[in-house]
């Protein structure tokens, strides 16, 4: 008799979470689905779901894909050397460097992007410094490069953290064993450290790729509103366009693509060790 009661207790403890999920995840999803599959008159239609295939939307989606893929690649290329360097630090320095990496995440996201707008603008700090060494001024603001810098800066910690966790977990003995068997530093990385960090890498990819594809604030501020990511298109459907049905339809189709992508990463994840964060 005690077991069901214990279960009841646990259910009780979980109820705030259940309420939260119902109110802020499930219910909004249902509302969005309902908007997506109806027209202004309230009749059932699938038109909005396929709106993503219209040329202008395809263009935005491809650009989003480009930004997200580029951002993910840059984050990976930046994260690995940083984490490897951190592995060689002492415990205290390691904690401090991790703190430094997380620090910007405590500042407001919009503020950080606005700061980048100042840095990258035509008469901003970057061009001032470049001018000092005789380069430029470069037109960076309102270009895809500016958006790329913004998303990489924003999402880099989300790539570093899971890779950091995975790599710090690797026992030093394994690295010594590899060296003992004749592996130089690069081979140790290629054959031992990298393969063992893949669960972390996959978590990092999911946490960087998806949000950088759907973000719209970065492109709004750093892209000058001219460069449209799929996120911007959706935003405008809701705000300026005031067409909630089209916006919801685009959101749903984007979500489907994201879920398909995630299904692939989770399939390759189950083959290796379990993922670190996701």
């Amino acid at each position: 008799m005690s077991k069901p009661r214990e279960l009841n207790k646990r259910t009780l403890v979980a109820s705030p979470y259940a309420v939260w999920v119902l109110a802020f995840t499930v219910l909004p999803l249902i509302v969005i689905l309902q908007y997506a599959m109806t027209d202004a008159a309230g009749h059932l239609t699938f038109r909005h779901l396929f709106e993503v295939f219209s040329p202008i939307h395809v263009k935005a989606a491809l650009f989003s894909l480009e930004i997200a893929a580029g951002c993910t690649v840059f984050c990976i290329l930046l994260a690995y050397p940083m984490v490897i360097a951190m592995r060689h630090l002492g415990m205290k320095q390691r904690g401090f460097s991790l703190f430094i990496i997380i620090l910007p995440m405590w500042m407001n996201f919009i503020l950080r992007i606005l700061a980048w707008q100042m840095i990258l603008s035509n008469n901003g700090i970057l061009n001032f410094l470049l001018g000092k060494i005789g380069i430029g001024p470069l037109q960076i603001a309102n270009t895809p490069a500016a958006i790329m810098i913004g998303v990489v800066y924003d999402y880099l910690p989300y790539m570093i953290l899971p890779i950091y966790t995975a790599i710090m977990e690797i026992n030093e003995d394994l690295i010594e064993a590899a060296k003992d068997l004749g592996a130089g530093s690069f081979t140790v990385f290629r054959r031992v450290i990298f393969p063992l960090s893949i669960p972390g890498l996959l978590s990092g990819i999911v946490m960087v790729f998806v949000p950088s594809m759907t973000s719209f604030v970065v492109s709004d501020i750093l892209g000058g509103g001219k460069l449209q990511l799929i996120g911007n298109v959706i935003e405008q459907e809701f705000t300026t366009g005031n067409d909630w049905h089209a916006g919801s339809g685009l959101s749903v189709s984007l979500m489907v693509f994201v879920l398909i992508g995630m299904a692939f990463t989770s399939v390759s994840k189950t083959e290796g060790k379990e993922s670190v964060i996701w």
């Binding site: 026992n171 003995d173 394994l174 010594e176 064993a177 590899a178 060296k179 003992d180 068997l181 004749g182 592996a183 130089g184 054959r191 031992v192 393969p195 063992l196 290796g272 060790k273």
Partner: peptide, 18 residues
């Protein structure tokens, strides 16, 4: 270590799990 013609058997086996 990688340049020495010496190999080690470690206490904790240290086999590559992957």
């Amino acid at each position: 270590p990688e340049k020495r013609n010496i190999n080690t058997v470690f206490q904790k086996y240290s086999l590559f799990p992957h």
